[in-house]
Deep mutational scan, measured.
Amino acid sequence: SYYEILDVPRSASADDIKKAYRRKALQWHPDKNPDNKEFAEKKFKEVAEAYEVLSDKHKREIYDR
């Protein structure tokens, strides 16, 4: 789930989600993982997609249904 990707509970606040996104984006940024760039790019995209949905109140409500 998007919550698992960002490592936050379903009850996470918008601020918690933003902090988790920043932490995970740094962790999986391809430039930070030169030895495993392809895998890092995949993870980085997953993190971005999760944040896009969970950071938008309307999209998150739909996702949580």
Score class of each variant (00 low, 15 high):
A48T: 13
L54F: 01
Q27T: 07
L54E: 01
E4M: 10
F39C: 09
K42W: 12
A20E: 02
E38K: 13
Q27E: 11
W28S: 02
D31A: 08
R60N: 02
F39I: 12
A50R: 01
D31C: 10
K43L: 07
K45W: 07
L6V: 01
Y21R: 02
Y2M: 07
D64I: 02
D64H: 03
V53H: 07
V53N: 05
K43D: 02
R22G: 12
S13I: 04
I5P: 01
D15G: 12
D7C: 12
A40V: 05
A20Y: 02
E61S: 07
A20K: 02
K18W: 10
E61Q: 08
N33W: 15
A40G: 04
L26D: 15
S11R: 10
Y2W: 09
N36L: 07
F44R: 08
K32Y: 15
A25N: 06
W28V: 03
A40W: 06
D16M: 12
K57W: 08
E4V: 12
P30E: 06
V8L: 11
A40K: 03
S13T: 13
P34Q: 15
R10C: 13
V8F: 00
S55V: 07
Y21Q: 03
L6D: 00
D31E: 12
D56Q: 04
P30L: 05
K57Y: 09
K19M: 12
E41L: 15
Y21W: 10
K59G: 04
L54W: 01
L54Y: 00
V8D: 00
L6W: 00
D15V: 09
S1K: 07
Y21E: 02
S55D: 04
A20Q: 05
H58S: 13
K24N: 05
R65I: 11
S11P: 03
A40M: 06
A20I: 01
E52K: 06
D7Q: 11
Y51V: 03
E52V: 05
K32D: 06
E41T: 13
A48P: 01
F44L: 14
P34T: 13
D56E: 04
E52W: 13
E41F: 10
R60Q: 04
K57Q: 14
W28R: 01
E41D: 10
K18I: 15
E41Q: 13
Y63R: 02
D56P: 01
W28M: 04
V8P: 00
H58R: 12
V8H: 00
R10A: 08
S1I: 05
F44Q: 06
D56V: 04
D64Q: 02
S1Q: 10
S13K: 07
D16G: 04
Y3H: 01
R65T: 12
D35P: 05
E49W: 06
E49V: 14
N33D: 05
K59N: 05
K24P: 00
K57N: 12
H58P: 04
Y2S: 02
Y21H: 05
A40T: 05
V47C: 12
P30I: 06
P30W: 04
Y21G: 03
V8A: 05
D16T: 09
A25M: 12
K24H: 06
R23A: 14
R22Y: 15
K24C: 08
D35V: 08
N33Y: 14
Y63Q: 02
Y2C: 04
E46V: 04
L54Q: 01
E46L: 11
F44Y: 13
K59R: 11
A25R: 15
F44I: 08
E38N: 09
V8C: 08
Y51F: 13
R65Y: 13
L54D: 00
K19W: 08
Y2P: 04
N33I: 04
A20M: 04
Y21K: 02
H29E: 08
E46N: 05
P30N: 04
E46K: 06
L6A: 00
Y51G: 03
D31H: 07
R10G: 06
L54V: 02
R22A: 15
I17P: 02
K45Q: 12
R22C: 14
I5F: 04
A12N: 01
Y63G: 01
K24A: 08
R22P: 02
N33V: 05
S55I: 10
A25G: 06
D16H: 06
K19A: 14
A14S: 13
N36T: 08
N33K: 05
V53Q: 04
Y51L: 03
R23T: 12
Y51S: 01
D35W: 12
E46C: 09
K37A: 10
Y51E: 01
A20D: 02
A14V: 15
K18M: 15
Q27V: 07
A48Y: 10
P30A: 08
A40Q: 06
K43N: 06
H29P: 02
D31W: 05
S55C: 07
